[in-house]
Each structure stands twice: as structure tokens, then as C-alpha cells.
Write a protein that binds this DNA or RNA. Structure first.
Lengths: 251, 251
DNA sequence: ACCTGAACACCGTTCAAGT
DNA sequence: ACCTGAACACCGTTCAAGT
């Protein structure tokens, strides 16, 4: 029933508001959402927060985004664009390793993206592009059919799983050093119990106490990736496409 | 002992309320929290919900639990108790594979636990016990030092990563079939664009369209696990402890 | 010691109303 | 078309007050 524009009066003096009058864009919204997430994590993100950051009311955002979940989905795909991968790498092992490393680096930069992955399937354009280049590399290695899917999944799973473990580790350390007195006493008692019941674990915990988390995490990541790629190489048609065999972290 | 209910000034008839009068226990609280999480996921869990389920006010819970995060941490460790593992398995590959499978099964039963893992380090008793048996198996395989840690991490990472991917996949399918008309049209258009830009991916998506998700997920899991264990076997002192070599999913 | 009731400071989301 | 303002139905958490 509402005619599209004429509302009585001097319509001609008031031309159609050009699109550039819009204060918001989906892109701008995703921008600040990603920024807030990077700075303060999931806890810091709220519709009202994003809105005020844009000088706008919370309700306005729903003109551009269906729900907060949608916004998170967009933010996830945005950071996926940061992953660099070259589908044309001559050695498929090198290409996959580089893809995995770039993926890991991105997830470490935007740790909130991890919890997004566990909650939401991502079918955004960047996710699809990454899948394509990964599949191409594995296709060149000789994988076909459902083995191709399984191989791609195995590499991605290692990346995601490894970053989750690393972040959890880092958070534990941060929490330990964060809380001041009182923690150490209770922790000491707890560790004593652990040592009693779980000697092997206790030995490892004692050893990793003084280790650089960053270096050790990278070592573990490379170790697991190396195992995986070795296992893949024995299952495909082109185990050694190039003469040079890059070591990805065996002892 | 209904005397506890008699009021009216006769304090001497009313002995000190025994501990068993308490309506709440940390255990009961964690019980219903886990039940709510299983039934309705993260979205369904609130302090008020748990409280009313226990016939109590929300504030009461804070007598037993510091924060909602603490409650989630307790629920996570509770569900980790379901993972079964035998540290005495003769073949370390069999033992590790069984541990990984049991872990995966648990995570699929309690999918909310996944997002917990990404957000919170878990140092509960059950988590530690699982780590201990895993490390023992790998120790028997000949791993020592930081290679022991890396090997353990690699297996766990694969489990976590694989379940995350599987759950995401299942959710996508559920969402697709859930929304009725209108979805298919937009989806078809989207798929057309995918096929144009990402031929390899499109080929795989077409192939996996008619596949049983459950069976295929298990296949992928076993495939990746097999790759990983093969790679581990080439890096340890005891590659083949038993004569029988269980195939864990190579084509 | 254990629990209630009410409050505080937030949420996501909707929607009439304005321009 | 785009945004405001106010409302709705929730949150987690705290805390005086009761028993």
C-alpha cells in the first residue's frame, strides 16, 4: 500500500537519497567486528559494541546482517582470506606444508576464529578457494576419489587440532602467571598429586616447564605434519615428485 | 526428621541442620548441567535453567561454583571420564588407535565439549589420566623426551580436528534439509558459481552428495589416523612390537 | 552454612516510528 | 531505504537478608 516515495509536499526538492548517504556497509560492520574480536575475543563482541563503534544504534546492524551468528560467519571468512597458498608448487608436500603453516599462522593471529570453526560450518568464498588449492595439490600427488577428501581432511584436521592445543596451553600459562599469590601453593599441591598418580605425565610436565612455548609448539606442529605427510606419501601414486625431500620436523 | 521444619521459637528442638539437608551438591549441579548441554547444547545452558531444574534459585549455585565457566570446566572433565583406554595393550598402535576412537566417540556424543576444548585448557583429573595412559603407550613404542609430547599431541590433534570437521559437516547437512523451500534455489545458484571457479572442489562435492556421512566420517578418521601412526612408526624405536599389523584405513 | 529475592549491568532481537 | 528509540525477554553475577 505505501507508494514507493511520494509522501506529500515538495518531493522534487528532496532527491532520492544516494547510496553513498548510507552510514553503514556490510563490509564496515565486518571490519569492526573482526577488530573487536582480535582485540578482546568473543567476550568483547556484542551488537551494541559494534554499533557504538560505528556511531550507530544496535538495531541498525540488522538491516545488513540477519543475526549475530551471520556476522561471525562473515568475520570468519574474512580472516580466511589471509591464508596464502600456491596451488602451483612443484612438490606437493612443500605446497601442502606451506598451506598448513599459513593456515596455522592465521588461526594464531585470530584465535576467536577457532571457536567459530567448532560451531559453524564455513562455506564462504575464501574457505572454498582454500579447499580448491589444497585439493589440487593432492590431486597432483595422485589422490583420487574419497581418498582425496580424506587426505585433505587429515591435513586440515591436524592444523585445527594443533592450534587448539597450542592456544589452550598458552592460556594455561597465562592464567598461571596472571593470578598472583595463592595460586602457586595450590598448584604445588595439585602437581604433587599428579606426580604420584601419573608419573609419566609428571615427568613430561616437569620437562616442559622451562621450555619456550612458541618454539616447542612449532616443533610439535612440524612433527605431526611430517608424520602425516609421510603416511600420505605411502598411500598415493606420486610419493616423491621432486628429488629434494624437505624434512618437516623429524627428530 | 521433620523437626527441622517446626518453627515457632523452640530453637532447642531444632538441631543444627546436618550437611545432608543441603539441597545441592556440586555433583548434582554438574549432572544437570551436562544433561542440559547434551539435550540443548551451549545455547540451552544458563545458570537460571540449571537452578530451576534443581528447584532452586540461580544465586544458590554460586555457593558451589565460582562461575559459569567453572561449571563448564567441571562438565567437560565429567564427560572425559567416559573415554576408555587400556594402557597395557600389547601393540602400541592398537592401543593408541583404540584410545583415539574412544575419544572421538565421546566427543561425538557430547558435541558441546568440543567448543569447551577450544576455549579452556582442561587440567581435570580425567584429562590427566587420559594423558598418562597415552604417554605410556607411546613410551613403550620407544618415544622419549619432546618427541613423546609431540607424538601424543599429534594423535590428540587429529581426533579433535576430525570431530570438529565432522560436526561442521553434519550441521551443514542438517541446516540444508531443515530450511524448506527457497534454500534449494539459492543453493543451486551458489553451487553453480562454485563449480565455475573451483572445479576440483565441485567434483568432490558432487561425489559426496549421496554418501552416508557417518560411514564416510569414520573412513576419513581411520585414514588420517593410519597415516599418522605410519609416520610415527618410522620415527620410533619399536615400529612393530607385534607381528600382526592392523590396517587402520589405508585404501 | 546454605539459600532467597532482588537488584545491577548487561545481552540479542524486534519493530513502530521517524527521515 | 535506512536508522532511531524503546521495548521484550532474557543473561551472569552479587549480596543483603533470611533460616
Amino acid at each position: 500500500m505505501p507508494s514507493s516515495e511520494s509522501s506529500g509536499g515538495s518531493v522534487w526538492l528532496r532527491p532520492e537519497r544516494p547510496p553513498r548517504d548510507r552510514q553503514l556497509t556490510r563490509e564496515r560492520i565486518v571490519d569492526v567486528a573482526a577488530a573487536v574480536l582480535d582485540a578482546e575475543g568473543h567476550r568483547g563482541l556484542s551488537m551494541r559494541r559494534v554499533a557504538t563503534e560505528l556511531g550507530v544504534t544496535a538495531g541498525s546492524l540488522y538491516w545488513y546482517v540477519h543475526t549475530k551468528d551471520d556476522l561471525l560467519e562473515l568475520a570468519l571468512d574474512r580472516v580466511l582470506a589471509e591464508v596464502r597458498a600456491d596451488p602451483g608448487t612443484s612438490d606437493w608436500r612443500d605446497g601442502l606444508a606451506a598451506l598448513a603453516r599459513s593456515n596455522r599462522a592465521m588461526l594464531l593471529r585470530h584465535r576467536w576464529a577457532l571457536s567459530e570453526l567448532t560451531v559453524r560450518p564455513n562455506l564462504g568464498p575464501n574457505a572454498l578457494a582454500l579447499a580448491e588449492t589444497g585439493l589440487r595439490l593432492l590431486e597432483r600427488a595422485g589422490f583420487v576419489g574419497s581418498d582425496l577428501d580424506a587426505a585433505m581432511a587429515a591435513v586440515n584436521d591436524h592444523v585445527v587440532g594443533a592450534v587448539i592445543a597450542e592456544v589452550a596451553w598458552r592460556d594455561t600459562l597465562a592464567r598461571m602467571s596472571g593470578t598472583g599469590s595463592g595460586w602457586d601453593e595450590r598448584a604445588a599441591e595439585y602437581l604433587r598429586q599428579i606426580a604420584e598418580r601419573h608419573p609419566t605425565l609428571a615427568g613430561r610436565m616437569a620437562a616442559t616447564g622451562e621450555i619456550d612455548v612458541e618454539r616447542e609448539s612449532e616443533r610439535r606442529f612440524a612433527f605431526g605434519l611430517g608424520c602425516l605427510l609421510d603416511g600420505l606419501a605411502t598411500r598415493c601414486a606420486t610419493p616423491f615428485p621432486s628429488s629434494r625431500h624437505r624434512d618437516a620436523g623429524s627428530r
